[in-house]
């Protein structure tokens, strides 16, 4: 290889590598930004989002029909206990890893009454006495509760129910 051709091939190789690196980085970067924003008020605790309006600017394409509660989690110090208080319409608990994958969903079709899971880092030993254990592929991620609440009255009722949700370190006691 001589002349300019080696530089052209090098540029093309770098182009392919940087293209792939960027495509793979986009979900991690955007999820990282979301975790930072959502965790500003504190990680490992639920925060109920204000009712979705045109002023909502934290997560793209929000649905104004839902009451959202979010817990930006960090499992570095151990497992968490997540509890979702029952709601009389559709609700779901969804978990997202650092690469944006929705790796777990639980909804009101599968649970009667309140729901509870233990969330731990993948590959770690499950704590004793833990029943429904879910393994997160990353230390950091996002837990999200959606409660169907298309009206202001329903949102306010969901806010009262959400006061009983739990996102907190798991203890064996």
């Amino acid at each position: 290889m001589s002349g300019w051709s080696k530089y052209v091939w090098a540029a093309l190789a770098i182009a392919v590598l940087s293209h792939l690196a960027l495509i793979n980085a986009v979900p991690n970067v955007l999820t990282g930004v979301a975790i930072s924003r959502l965790g500003e008020a504190g990680v490992n605790q639920w925060h109920m989002a204000p009712r979705v309006t045109e002023a909502s600017r934290t997560i793209v394409r929000p649905a104004p029909d839902f009451a959202y509660s979010v817990c930006a989690y960090d499992l570095a110090r151990g497992p968490l206990r997540l509890r979702v208080a029952d709601w009389d319409q559709y609700w779901s608990l969804s978990l997202y890893g650092a690469n944006s994958d929705n790796f777990f969903v639980l909804d009101d079709r599968e649970v009667r009454g309140d729901a509870e899971i233990i969330l731990m880092r993948q590959g770690r030993a499950a704590p004793d006495h833990a029943e429904q254990v879910v393994q997160s592929p990353s230390s950091k991620g996002i837990a999200l509760i959606r409660r169907l609440a298309p009206t202001l009255e329903a949102y306010n009722a969901a806010a009262r129910v959400a006061a009983d949700d739990v996102c907190a370190p798991f203890t064996n006691s």
Binding site: Y7, V8, A10, A11, I14
Partner: peptide, 11 residues
């Protein structure tokens, strides 16, 4: 220049 062009093309 090759590196810059490559990164630019990739982005």
């Amino acid at each position: 220049a090759a590196a810059l062009v490559g990164v630019g093309l990739g982005v």
